[in-house]
Design a protein around this nucleic acid. Sequence first.
DNA 1: AGTATTTTTTCGAGGCTCGAAAAAATAGAG
DNA 2: CTCTATTTTTTCGAGCCTCGAAAAAATACT
Lengths: 411, 411
Amino acid sequence: MSVGIRHDDLRRRNRAMVISAVRRAGQPSRTEIAATTGLSHSTISAISSDLIQEGILAESKPGETGALKRGRPQVGLGLNPEAAAVMTVVLSLNFLSVTVIDYAGHVVAEEQRRLDTLTMPRDELIGECTAIVRRRLEDPDLDVQSIARIAMGIQGITDSQARAMLWSPITPLTDIAFADILEAEFGIPATMENDCNMMAVALQWRQPERYRDDFIAILLSHGIGMGLVLKGELFTGTHSSGGEFGHMIHRPGGALCRCGRRGCVEAYAGNYAIWRNAMGMSEDAEPVDVGDADMRALAARARETDGPEREAYHKAGEALGFGLGSLFALIDPAPVAMVGVSAAAFDLIEPALREAIAQTAGGQHSKSISFDTEPNELPLIREGCAMRALGFVDQEIFAPGIQSKTGKHVA
Amino acid sequence: MSVGIRHDDLRRRNRAMVISAVRRAGQPSRTEIAATTGLSHSTISAISSDLIQEGILAESKPGETGALKRGRPQVGLGLNPEAAAVMTVVLSLNFLSVTVIDYAGHVVAEEQRRLDTLTMPRDELIGECTAIVRRRLEDPDLDVQSIARIAMGIQGITDSQARAMLWSPITPLTDIAFADILEAEFGIPATMENDCNMMAVALQWRQPERYRDDFIAILLSHGIGMGLVLKGELFTGTHSSGGEFGHMIHRPGGALCRCGRRGCVEAYAGNYAIWRNAMGMSEDAEPVDVGDADMRALAARARETDGPEREAYHKAGEALGFGLGSLFALIDPAPVAMVGVSAAAFDLIEPALREAIAQTAGGQHSKSISFDTEPNELPLIREGCAMRALGFVDQEIFAPGIQSKTGKHVA
DNA sequence: AGTATTTTTTCGAGGCTCGAAAAAATAGAG
DNA sequence: CTCTATTTTTTCGAGCCTCGAAAAAATACT
């Protein structure tokens, strides 16, 4: 049962509101914050002067805001970049990347590394991850103390608590509690996030006008993943990260999926499935890894001639369309972002996809459903991790309402 | 963007907490309320004495609580039945029923009526609904003033604001804003709820230990519907009531569904679909209404001999299983309640259903997924409407924190 | 230089929750 | 039958928090 509101929660929550308003708006004045939060000017004034004293916010230099009006000029409030920093760790197929981001959201350092995730033993994979984090932390330019959060993102299924990777296509290993491992190793709070969820988070920040309360981010890559935002909140399963759109059943008993089952959407629309169909291989053929370049070449051939390549994309579109149709039956239609290398071939996929959707419950709005494409998922995942980590910091820096009582400096 | 917390919101929310704690617990003492809400004894004392003075709560007679312990005995607090009343209106195929429920949740009056929903013109259908409500309101035993809410439930799709029926299998009519109609007619706040959602709400109250945070209620009747509770909240679509499980696609291009599309789960598992298959009719045959008695007889025949009847239930189980599998891919497995006349034939459905689930992403936990059955949906829908309406009242009676200031009596 | 205008801060009032202590109500002991 | 231990509930003052109104600050316009 939800718990009553204590008196001190009030301040804490309103501080949170102010911080989040600033993060969203960039350089809002106190008056603007009062307007968006609905709190009184007095309250905003009190809270923001606290936050400035605590070094969380900073007044921007006057004159930065153009368009001078009559009256006392507004003073913009911004996040103090030095208030804290966060780290993102993104582990994808054969690739590990780390970024350090200041409190204002700017990248201050990064490092990337190729490795053979598919064959690496457990200790080594974990070791690579902790090693790359350690190298960044040992950077003399960096104040280790300032790193307040680590958000790790991975392709695959994570638990709903964002503590562990449960299963991933990039490694045969399962159940690695990366969040716990990083916390134990570095003493910094960490979470283990699902890649597609982070894509959704990033889209929400990048294009808030399009991706706001309800939308779908679908990863079209080797596998098919989904990040789902409903009523403004990231959707997760009851136990896992959930949203395994790629493993909804398209055709019972159908093509062999990488997950070992049959007829999943992914078994028709994943890169390996498109490849399998384009090459005239059996639908029972063991999934193989296909490079991005090969996929681009395949798409080019499909565009050129009407052959098995085009038919393969058609089948992918059909699977995605019926899958989306079933999804829309559950949640109603919403804007969709297609992300990943095969999103670049969305022109080949779209016709069959729309045709399929038109045959489903979502079909009534089939025309009005809009798709956006973004071929490069990695930057999105990194951005999502960064925003997620910063969001946690936002909610942890103000939480110590008690701590701030003692730690407050006199004006 | 969510809005800051005002100072007066605090009391309002905590009043809500207290009321909801009392509704849940039945006759809790102030001490128990303090424990469940996490608020201090002083606060609970202040709030509950307000609520008692306002006639919302009432102290139960001493001695009612058994098991005398040492010390001052606890005084149970209960909802004052006379604080308010609500009305439920449930419209289903050829059947309209109304109940009046006091604030404590007990039925104080009811009326039921057969009518031919399928052929009724718009005005007449609306007229029947308003007429039956008016008759109840004119009951001399009833204080009209006390009716604070009407919750109407209907088979079919409603909008996500719970204002209108958008589509329903019980009538060819569409887009009837019943909530607005009732409000305009009687001046009482009303909502238009989806039947399966109300089933879920009722289950949450009936068996909170089983149906708490995450569960699924599936209606196996003429059509297939679903009510979904995730993280303790009723799930709705972005525009409509959502959760149209029955219209997820089981077999692309497959059997003809009542919705006019092909291959929906319902086209294999709805009563008409089971009937169609059992009778050896084509999968393209126009859906027909089958009476409950006929369905029970069909189930009996299926249990007796291994023939087309049994095969029909097998197909239904398969469709439901793959549908659930896809659903579980999205939300992870959760407890399921099967409701409706065909839930009584769940023994015939379950084997194929489990077999199908085992072939899906939910399959990993296929053994641990538990099903409960409840053949009679109508009482559940009524109960759900009642609890929903009462919930609204709970949140409206305390909301007038301003009103209560003036309206407060002196002790 | 003075006035109008807009933003921000200050200040007192009113509420709310909390902890501690008091009051109330009962069972058990002697 | 009285006293004591125990448990529940109320009372009371302290400490915060938000708010509205007024004051202060900072600028453009005249």
